[in-house]
Design a protein around this nucleic acid. Structure first.
Length: 907
DNA sequence: TTGTCACAACA
DNA sequence: TTTGTTGTGACAAG
């Protein structure tokens, strides 16, 4: 009778959604659970976590989550003050119910509501239906009224604390706690009262007294009938409150025959929608629940064809003839996976698969080969090199740039003819994704689960035993098959969307160019680096000493926490903008404080300290990055920035200082390397504003660029209605800030902040701006509208960015998406253009047989290393390729400089 | 050891 | 309450 669920009976799990979400909300610290956009997720997390645990422990066959509606219920109609006096829902909780609803939908769990009734009534109704159908029923709720449902078949899981501690309240447990059987619990509650529902009971009567009466008079009716006989103060109170008690009893009776839109048939458990779960949890930045969730269902149901992908047997062609024969016989494009020993590519695994066929998992003919690169004779190596470099021999590779570098850098083998790289095609399809690992893409697009550890096409363990070697090869061939299927899917999607050209003509060939740039690296002047470190260290020491002298003690100037204590407590300076951990001490705020305190020496020293430490830190990073060849090799990442830009890592060479003189000195350490004559830098001037002019078609702006005027002076003269020569530096800088801000979705408030002017002045400025450049305003408005309608923005080249948050109910999310929508076509088109220019420069250098080479890209700038005697030809070539990379209604202006260092080559 | 925050550098 | 990045030290939690 008190045992848990019977193994042979179906189990129905019923959850009071609001009640448990609320418990979860208070159980988990709200400040620890929120997304970067400020959406709180502690209740979502706690609720989902609880749900996963419940499913795991109870293994229900059927499940439903009931919610209250915000509309009045019959209880409100009967009693005005029902649930009155509750404190307002915390703001942090609002919206999370909605998110929980979305989680449930993604998990294929029904949510049930009924107009005019509470979740408890829905649960009571379903519990009764379940009981009638001979189910074991589990009710999870923080509402004690549910105890009345408990009997042999129905058990309530009532949270003791938080949402993980859910004791089973069966009949015995209820009776033990309240001294009455479950069916009499509402009698007891009517006497005792329920604060949460604003139902006062009889003063001085607690569960013990109430239970005694109920037992003595055989139920509440008996108690009320004999009210006159009850002695003492409690009896008196009871007689005074009889009407309240009757009302309480009426209100706490749960309705068991609510007319519901679903029945038990609709509540069967099924596997979650993995794609929807991934998407939702990604958006909520909840990372730890997916594995638990999928683990839970992993053993239950798998989509057909998943997890049983097996690679083909491997042959080991090793002579030129065998290799040539294998290449000739391979059906379709060949998946190519390197096997790495240390940093060297020791072998290649090649896999090809017969025609696509259907998706029913029917066997297909696949072939596989392992080519041991260390054991090829000259002829065989030539045969392999010929095939690898054969543009007509199609290959599919994951992470092309890495594989290209591996083969080219390690063995001088040039890889060409790559028709797809899922890390790039996946990126073009979904540029906001964080990971393009094979395992993630396969899971997401094909629903094929492969262990993340296995996903890398290469592993670095040495001295593998025979078994480990076999496992490694099996993994590689399996991944080869997954790679081919994934590639087919992604390529079809790209073609369907019309983005195939972006892939084959831009991103794929660019991977090779970037690979060459990374291999080349840029020469570093080590002596200069050391000197800079010393210089900056001296400045740091001086600033630190000064700062300590002012406050009379030594603190860690790098600790925002300690800084806050000194600035706002010890020195008692005015508070700055609030942040999570107190008040900000960022450079803007400190500069502002300096102005307000007439140059407080501590703050001045702090800024000096910050500047110098930042610079030293940058220099130290560079020192560590100098390779054995005396050059710095950055890594470009082609699939991080959602707009289409590249990013640069280890070290980041796209954020080397330039704005201040001190910082600019760091550019002196990037120098021309041995065997070359000089460095060349070439950059687009105002490319984003030019794209804005082109896309908006604003005649005035276009004319300005065609006339080759100083853009900001020109715009200033229009906005302020003065002659161009009368535009003051102040006017120019305001206009400049606004021009760039517009492309970022700047508001008048933001503009006023940035320019330190009033909001009214900023608003007027924007008004004047738009009255002169109306097409710009129309264009910006149109972008957001179109993006909301289509769900994505497009660059000139057709690169898309999806922005589902444009139709979010959350204002903050929506407005962020709107600003991203304004920016994406502009930043993205600029990225497309310089990528095209890089391909053009690379091809032209090759075509003209030059020895000069491209080294760096910094968004709108290229740095090249110029071979002796090629200065003029290269300058012309670069200008031509960069200026000709796009056909806009305005010219693309390119400025070029030459010099021994990056600093000197600047212009 | 790991994850998050504040801060700062670039286009 | 202006977009997109990478990297560092401090700090708290595991």
């Amino acid at each position: 009778m008190t045992e848990t669920t019977s193994p042979d009976k179906p189990t129905l799990l019923l959850i009071d959604g609001h009640s448990m979400a609320f418990r979860a909300f208070f159980a988990l610290p709200v400040e620890k659970f929120s997304t970067t956009t400020g959406q709180h997720t502690n209740a979502v997390y706690g609720f989902t976590s609880m749900l996963i645990n419940l499913i795991k422990q109870e293994r229900p066959t059927h499940i439903a989550v009931a919610f209250d509606l915000s509309t009045p219920t019959f209880r409100d109609a009967q009693y005005d003050a029902y649930k009155a006096g509750r404190s307002a829902t915390p703001n942090e909780f609002k919206g999370q119910i909605d998110l929980i609803g979305r989680v449930l939908t993604a998990m294929n769990i029904r949510t049930v509501t009924a107009e005019g009734f509470e979740a408890d009534d829905v649960i009571a109704t379903l519990a009764t239906q379940g009981e009638d159908a001979d189910f074991d029923v589990l009710v999870v709720t923080g509402d004690r009224d549910a105890f009345q449902l408990v009997d042999d078949a129905v058990t309530v899981l009532y949270p003791r604390k938080g949402v993980t501690d859910l004791p089973r309240m069966d009949a015995a447990a209820v009776e033990e706690k309240y001294f009455v059987p479950p069916n009499r619990y509402p009698d007891l509650a009517a006497l005792v009262g329920e604060t949460a529902d604003n139902l006062p009971g009889v003063p001085g009567v607690g569960p013990k007294t109430a239970a005694k009466w109920i037992t003595q008079y055989d139920g509440l009716e008996g108690v009320l009938a004999h009210a006159d006989e009850i002695k003492g103060k409690a009896g008196e109170s009871l007689r005074e409150r009889i009407e309240d008690v009757r009302r309480n009893r009426q209100l706490n009776r749960l309705i068991t025959d609510v007319d519901l839109p679903v029945g038990l048939d609709h509540l069967g458990m099924s596997a979650p929608d993995r794609e929807a779960i991934d998407e939702l949890f990604d958006a909520l930045e909840i990372r730890t629940l997916q594995p638990r969730l999928f683990e839970l269902f992993g053993e239950q149901e798998e989509p057909p064809g998943a997890d049983d992908v097996v690679g083909p047997e491997l042959t080991t062609p090793s002579t030129a003839a065998e290799l040539t024969a294998w290449f000739a016989a391979a059906p379709g494009p060949v998946a190519l996976l390197p096997l790495v020993e240390g940093t060297d590519c020791a072998a290649l695994v090649l896999v090809a698969e017969d025609a696509p066929g259907d998706e029913d998992g029917a066997p297909r003919d696949a072939v596989g080969a392992r080519i041991d690169l260390t054991a090829l004779d000259a002829d065989a190596e030539a045969a392999l090199a010929g095939w690898l470099g054969d543009r007509a021999a199609g290959k599919v590779v994951h992470d092309l740039k890495t594989v290209y570098k591996l083969l080219r850098g390690g063995r001088g083998l040039v890889l060409d003819g790559v028709v797809d790289d899922p890390s790039l095609s996946g990126y073009l399809l979904q540029p906001d994704r964080r990971s393009y690992e094979l395992a993630d893409l396969a899971q997401h697009h094909l629903r094929i689960s492969i262990a993340a550890n296995d996903a890398a096409g290469s592993q670095t363990e040495l001295d593998l035993t025979g078994d480990e070697e076999q496992t490694r090869l099996a993994t590689a061939t399996r991944n080869g098959i997954v790679l081919l299927r994934l590639s087919r899917y992604l390529t079809d999607e790209l073609v369907a969307r019309g983005s195939a050209d972006l892939m084959t003509r831009l991103e794929l060939p660019l991977a090779k160019v970037l690979g060459d740039m990374e291999l080349a690296g840029i020469a570093a002047d080590s002596a200069h680096l050391t000197a800079l470190t010393d210089d900056f260290s001296t400045s740091i020491d001086a600033a630190q000493k000064e700062a300590f002298a002012v406050i009379g003690k030594e603190i860690n100037l790098g600790s925002p926490k300690q800084l806050q204590a000194v600035i706002f407590d010890d020195l008692g300076l005015p508070k700055t903008k609030k942040i999570k951990t107190g008040y900000t001490t960022d450079a803007d705020a400190i500069t502002d404080l300096i102005a307000r305190t007439d140059g407080h020496p501590f703050l001045v020293a702090l800024l000096a300290y910050r500047d110098a430490s930042k610079l030293r830190q940058t220099v130290e990073g560079l020192v560590k990055s100098v390779a054995d060849d005396g050059r710095i090799h950055t890594t470009y990442v082609q699939n991080i920035a959602a707009t289409g830009r590249l990013s640069s890592m280890n070290p980041n060479l796209q954020n080397i200082p330039i704005r201040t003189d001190e910082g600019r000195r760091i550019r002196e350490v990037f120098v021309v390397g041995g065997g070359y004559r000089t460095l060349l830098t070439a950059d687009y001037s105002q490319i984003e504003m030019r794209i804005m002019a082109h896309l908006s078609g604003d005649e005035a702006l276009i004319q300005a660029f065609r006339d080759g005027e100083d853009l900001h002076r020109f715009v200033g003269s229009h906005v302020f209605d003065v002659a161009p020569e009368d535009v003051s530096p102040a006017m120019r800088s305001k206009v400049k800030a606004m021009s760039y801000g517009l492309a970022y979705g700047l508001s008048s408030f933001g503009l006023s902040k940035q320019l330190a002017i009033g909001v009214d002045e900023a608003r007027n400025l924007m008004g004047d701006y738009f009255s002169r450049f109306g097409a710009v305003r129309d264009y910006l408005r149109g972008i957001v509208e179109t993006a909301r309608k289509d769900g994505y923005t497009s660059t000139i080249e057709g690169r898309r960015r999806y922005l589902p948050d444009l139709s979010s109910d959350n204002r903050q999310l929506r407005e962020m998406a709107e600003r991203a929508a304004l920016n994406a076509p502009i930043q993205g088109s600029a990225a497309d253009i310089i990528k095209k220019a890089m391909l053009g420069v690379d091809r032209a250098i090759e075509a003209q047989g030059l020895s000069s080479r491209m080294l760096l890209q910094v968004h709108d700038e290229l740095v090249l290393e110029v071979a002796d005697g090629e200065e003029e030809q290269l300058t012309a070539l670069v200008r031509e390729q960069m200026a000709g990379a796009a056909d806009l209604s305005v010219p693309l202006d390119v400025s070029v400089g030459l010099g021994r260092s990056w600093h000197e080559a600047a212009h």
